[in-house]
Design a binder for these strands. Structure first.
Lengths: 167, 167
DNA sequence: ATTGAAAATTAACCTTG
DNA sequence: CAAGGTTAATTTTCAAT
């Protein structure tokens, strides 16, 4: 079953929970038997624990990672976007629209002088120029954009989870 | 077996491959039987295709997604970093070090006036201040940093993969 | 390269400590 | 809550097309 609702509070996690999370972040397709062995519990317990983590909303999904060059998207960029006006309607519309575009890997809604930061991946620098023109420059609600090339993108380890009681 | 090597070229993908990728990005733990049904091929074929995608380096991993608030990391920030000097040694050292810190979700090495953009998640604004002080301000190689709060982070859909021949 | 059916592995359930 | 044991489902292999 899916987690009941979202906007989320901290959850009590013991050492075994954290270990399970770590293993599943590292490899979401690990077998339950191996997961149990690595976390030092019985397979049946591992299954229950994992299920509980999903139901408590700690684990929110399992996703395959795709090599961008392999699928013809070798060029990445970060684009900071300032809107022309800042009413709720404009913001919400933009917030909904952008992540749906297939080129958008990630969108940050930020404090400071710019409103958004978009992380996108396209096939070439020409495609990058076209993309900015097509989806941002021609958008009435967009005031200003600034594009930066990404030379390298390194994902974090999803590493150790804080030992709790986030004060 | 793992993909042979990395630095990667575009790969020929047919419609079935793209469908498999899409399904596995959406849910990496979908059963092979269901994957086969949704892509309109036999289960054994689905298995072979999926394995081939891994071996060709198209699928690079399967990862569980964790709710940051649930694990006590409700505060996200983007930090742009400029190094003091730009020799290979400094760059490589920084590039290796940062993604290993558990708070770092993602690190971008960028063109332009700043060298890096770090996306981090911590438990509170106080922890954010401390983190910048501990890991950046006191680092000899770091010249300047600028921290921006993240109000919202929206992941892309991993959406449709380009229909090939990235020109 | 794709398939269908057999063999091996894995997950789910239920009962007991 | 955790563990063990049984049944059900699933993945994996393989010969054949």
């Amino acid at each position: 079953m899916a987690p009941s609702t979202f906007p989320q509070q901290p959850v009590e996690l013991d050492a075994v929970d954290r270990r399970i999370i770590q293993e599943l972040v590292n490899d979401a397709r690990i077998s339950n038997a191996l997961l149990a062995q690595r976390t030092g519990i019985a397979p049946s317990t591992a299954l229950l624990r994992t299920r509980a983590l999903v139901e408590r909303g700690v684990l929110t999904g399992y996703h395959a990672e795709v090599s961008l060059p392999a699928v013809g998207r070798s060029v990445q960029a970060l684009i900071s976007v300032r809107l022309r006006v800042h009413d709720r309607v404009q913001i919400d519309k933009f917030t909904q629209k952008m992540p749906q575009l297939p080129e958008v890997l990630s969108m940050f809604h930020t404090s400071g002088v710019t409103d958004y930061l978009l992380h996108i991946a396209v096939s070439s620098t020409e495609a990058l120029r076209d993309w900015v023109l097509d989806y941002l420059a021609t958008d009435e609600s967009v005031g200003h954009t600034e594009t930066t090339l990404v030379f390298g993108h390194h994902k974090g380890l999803g590493g150790p989870i804080p030992e709790n009681l986030p004060n």
